[in-house]
């Protein structure tokens, strides 16, 4: 029965990946990658029970945290174009100047 859940999650991941590849805007892609990451956490959790190795749950736990931070960091990079300016207004002003 775990196999059914694994296959369903893999199919969802495939659909999310397709959206990430085709998505018209950057935000579509980031949303799809976020969803992909959430599914990965679930996949690892189901895999832990499927293979009977409960250590994998720790990996799922860590992946849940890293996924969130990764998405936020990617979002910051996309909206600001850099990591060095700490607040958004400054970089928006800069972008305004360059236009």
């Amino acid at each position: 029965m775990f196999v059914a859940a694994l296959l369903a999650i893999l199919l969802t991941m495939g659909l999310a990946l397709a959206r990430a590849l085709t998505g018209p805007t950057t935000y579509d892609r980031i949303a799809a990658v976020n969803m992909f990451g959430t599914k990965t956490v679930l996949l690892i959790a189901v895999l832990a029970f499927f293979s009977g190795r409960s250590d994998l749950l720790d990996i799922a736990l860590v992946y849940a945290l890293i996924n969130f931070i990764g998405v936020i960091a990617a979002l910051k990079l996309v909206t600001q174009g850099n990591f060095h300016s700490s607040d958004g207004d400054e970089s928006e002003a800069k972008q305004g100047e360059s236009k």
Binding site: A4, L11, T12, R19, L42
Partner: peptide
């Protein structure tokens, strides 16, 4: 629970398309 969760996941996956 597992099967319903998997099915909802696929529904969401269809939804984003």
């Amino acid at each position: 629970c597992l099967v319903a969760g998997g099915a909802l996941g696929i529904v969401g996956g269809i939804g984003i398309h």
